[in-house]
């Protein structure tokens, strides 16, 4: 026990370091949150004292030139639909792959390919999708975007759901089979209620990934289906960077993630930990 005491000072110093790092993480967010309420001139002169204004938000949402509100809607539609589809497909597939008789080469092959695909840079596939989708007139459509987001997030969904499914004891669906459940009934009445937490965790994470996606949205959308990350990037790309609107847009786009952290911190951590390749 003596060593704890002798290292107490050192321990204090390292702890201080951690809290400093936490501050370094927080600071940029506070700073951008402040910038969102500043006028352009206050940002450019980086004045610390300023009168908060809502002009950035007003311009962002109500201005005729700004499509931000529309983009927000697009982001929501695409993220929610693709999340729902990913969770449903991956829950059903991992149930079948893990708990029913499937040839080994098939289940191992599917999992291995999904994992490998997850590690490959998305841009390589986006380039192929772009030409394929052009032929099929799927560019700049919700279906195209949803399809792309489902594809890119499916491996993570599969991985997470299969991890959560492994926690359901085998006995339970054997009991269900004996009780007369069809496969579908076993899945919907026994398995789904039991992996509910896991599904929420998966959905939270997939939603965040889909909401955050930039690579796909940049290349497969135009004005009509453009999502928030693309419009934030557009502010930064314009000749005269609209810092205030960029900050306000950034702040708004972080809201879903912030809400999820506040209300579902447990689920996100669970998902992140389970999703990291073990």
């Amino acid at each position: 026990m003596s060593h704890t005491r002798s290292n107490h000072g050192f321990y204090r110093v390292t702890q201080l370091f951690v809290w400093c790092y936490a501050l370094i993480i927080l600071f940029p967010f506070l700073w951008i949150a402040m910038a969102a309420f500043k006028r352009q001139i206050d940002i450019l002169t980086s004045s610390f004292f300023f009168t908060p204004v809502l002009s950035n938000f007003e311009e962002l949402i109500f201005s005729k030139q700004s499509s931000f509100f529309h983009d927000l809607l697009n982001s929501g539609i695409i993220a929610i639909s693709s999340t729902a589809i990913v969770v449903l497909i991956s829950a059903m597939a991992s149930f079948t792959l893990l708990r029913m008789y499937v040839p080994r080469w098939l289940s191992v092959g599917l999992f291995a390919w999904a994992m490998l695909f997850h590690m490959l840079p998305p841009i390589t596939f986006v380039s192929a999708w772009f030409t394929i989708f052009s032929e099929l007139n799927l560019i700049n459509t919700y279906s195209g975007m949803i399809l792309a987001h489902v594809t890119i997030n499916l491996p993570m969904g599969l991985w997470l759901m299969s991890n959560f499914l492994k926690e359901v004891p085998r006995d339970l669906y054997e009991a269900a089979a004996i009780d007369g459940c069809s496969n579908a009934a076993t899945f919907f009445r026994i398995v789904l209620p039991l992996i509910r937490t896991g599904m929420i965790a998966t959905a939270a994470l997939i939603f965040i990934f889909s909401w955050s996606d930039f690579t796909i949205a940049l290349n497969l959308t135009a004005k009509a289906t453009q999502t928030v990350p693309v419009s934030i990037a557009t502010f930064a790309q314009e000749f005269e960077i609209k810092y205030g609107q960029m900050a306000a847009g950034s702040l708004l786009s972080t809201l879903p993630a912030l809400l999820l952290i506040v209300f579902g911190q447990r689920y996100i951590v669970k998902g992140l930990l389970s999703g990291s390749v073990k």
Partner: peptide, 20 residues
Amino acid sequence: VVFLLPIVLPPIVIGAIWKL
């Protein structure tokens, strides 16, 4: 909670913040 922030925020926002 603090350390979750950078992980769950859109990377483009992080790019925007640091660009500023």
